[in-house]
Amino acid sequence: MKESHFQSLFHHQPEKFEKASNIGNTSHIIPIIDLAIINKDPSNRLGLVDIVKKTSETWGFFPVVNHDIPLSVLVEMKNGVKWFHEMDTEAKKQFYSRDRSKSFLYKSNFDLYGSQPSINWRDSFWYLYYPDAPKPEEIPVVCRDILLKYRKHIMKLGILLLELFSEALGLSPNYLKDIGCAEGLFALCHYYPSCPEPDLTTGTTMHSDNDFFTVLLQDHIDGLQVRYEDKWIDIPPCTWHFRN
């Protein structure tokens, strides 16, 4: 395959890109879900549930702060993802697979053979957290410890969010958990390598996640957007996760 033809696989048509509409627009500020509200005073839970309900109905997306995941764990998790993707190609090659039955696999563009005309400029690794987490020896050494550590924290946060979603629906706190919504958990860890023609491609194209809900660990780099009232809204990098 010629290099020019290979690169064309990543080219996206200019008309596919839309500029965000929220620059300087204060009406496009997404409410923050501050879990310290209920940690300090459980009587505030009803008010927090109401915020979750309204934000989920209007945005379908919200930042979460004071979630009790130590900042050191978040930083180490992001570093672990980076360290894996920046290993030598030969070291990573043993983990490359498109077999979704594996607990840990490294890949690029899971929908590479789909119908879309262009693919994303992105590499990823996929890790099954629950119910059948891989054995430690199946995880690359460079990110093994943090993936196992992060699993415990993110599962706890996920359960709490399921409780809030259940209550926002007017149901008992354990409803979504009891019907099986907490029985599957996986991490999809993306890496966006340096691109020689960044104006012609994109790291992640428009999509809707196909899981029940996603907990996103954002880094310091711009680019995340969500769709709101038929317009794309920029989500600033969330470099803080705790407030006083």
Rank of each mutant, 00 (worst) to 15 (best):
K2A: 12
Q7A: 10
E15L: 00
K16T: 12
F17H: 00
E18P: 03
A20L: 03
T26G: 03
T26C: 12
S27N: 12
H28V: 12
H28C: 15
H28G: 11
I32F: 10
I33T: 03
L35I: 05
A36Y: 11
D41W: 05
P42G: 04
R45W: 02
L46D: 15
G47C: 08
L48K: 06
V49Q: 07
I51G: 05
K53T: 09
T55M: 04
E57G: 02
T58I: 13
W59E: 01
P63Y: 00
V65W: 00
N66G: 00
H67P: 05
H67A: 07
D68F: 12
L71Q: 15
V75W: 13
K78V: 08
N79I: 10
N79M: 10
V81R: 01
K82Y: 14
W83N: 15
F84H: 09
M87S: 11
D88L: 07
T89Q: 15
K93I: 03
S97Y: 04
S101Q: 13
F104K: 00
F104W: 05
F110N: 14
G114M: 09
S115M: 15
Q116C: 06
P117C: 05
I119P: 04
N120G: 01
N120Q: 03
R122A: 12
R122S: 10
S124A: 15
F125C: 02
F125G: 02
L128S: 11
Y129L: 10
Y130E: 10
A133R: 01
P134W: 07
K135S: 13
P136G: 03
P136D: 12
E138H: 06
V142N: 08
V142H: 03
V142F: 05
V142K: 04
D145I: 07
D145C: 08
I146K: 02
L148K: 02
Y150F: 05
R151E: 14
I154D: 03
I159T: 05
L161W: 01
E163C: 01
L164R: 01
S166P: 00
E167V: 08
G170P: 04
L171S: 03
N174Q: 13
Y175V: 03
I179R: 02
E183L: 11
A187L: 14
C189I: 06
C189F: 05
P193Q: 13
P198Q: 04
D199G: 04
G203I: 09
T205E: 11
M206D: 14
M206C: 13
S208Y: 09
D209N: 01
N210W: 13
N210Y: 12
T214E: 10
V215E: 15
L216Q: 07
Q218A: 02
H220W: 10
I221M: 12
I221F: 04
D222N: 11
L224D: 00
Q225E: 10
R227H: 11
Y228D: 06
E229Y: 07
W232P: 00
P237S: 13
C238F: 15
T239M: 02
N244T: 14
